[in-house]
């Protein structure tokens, strides 16, 4: 998968910034997408294109458990988030939605907004096509991969339940 990076070097970008609570009276991806990243980057939804990638510092997605944060980003066209580290509930929500979240230490200092990134999830490699650099990341755990490959947690368990 290849996408253009939107880089936020700041640490601790929280889910209130990704999707402010004033929009939590809605839960449809298309409605939430209009306000993705609104309290940190008011212009984000006008710039983001289908298939783009967010790159951020440590503890991305901290704070509220609202899964609306994942839906807002995905609805806005974001294909993956790569961060130095993730907050736990956000990371879990990504896996459960089959949405790619990659922990890659130091990434926020290496990538700039506009860089073209090619991500190989199998091999654990990100190629920065703009800067001609290559970054490695630890493989996504098998259990999480199984959920992601199934399309999300509910598809994963629905076989078991039915």
């Amino acid at each position: 998968m290849t996408g253009k990076a939107h880089c936020y070097q700041r640490d601790h970008i929280n889910t209130d910034e990704i999707i402010p609570a004033r929009y939590l009276n809605m839960d449809k991806e298309a409605d939430l997408a209009k306000h993705a990243m609104e309290d940190i980057d008011t212009d984000f939804v006008r710039r983001v294109k289908e298939g783009d990638v967010i790159v951020a510092g440590v503890d991305f997605g901290c704070g509220s458990s609202r899964e609306h944060a994942v839906w807002a980003l995905r609805g806005a066209g974001v294909r993956a988030v790569i961060a130095d580290t993730f907050a736990r509930i956000f990371y879990r929500n990504c896996i459960n939605n089959g949405f790619i979240a990659i922990e890659c230490r130091g990434i926020s200092q290496k990538v700039a907004t506009g860089d073209n990134l090619e991500i190989d999830v199998e091999k654990g490699i990100i190629k920065n096509l703009t800067k001609n650099e290559r970054y490695e990341f630890p493989a996504i755990p098998d259990f999480a991969r199984d959920i992601i490959d199934a399309g999300g947690l509910l598809d994963y368990i629905s076989r078991k339940v039915k």
């Binding site: 458990s65 994942v70 459960n96 999300g152 947690l153 339940v161």
Partner: peptide, 14 residues
Amino acid sequence: TGIGSTDLAAALAT
């Protein structure tokens, strides 16, 4: 512990 809506759905179902 806190979880998201998909987790909530999974726990409700199983």
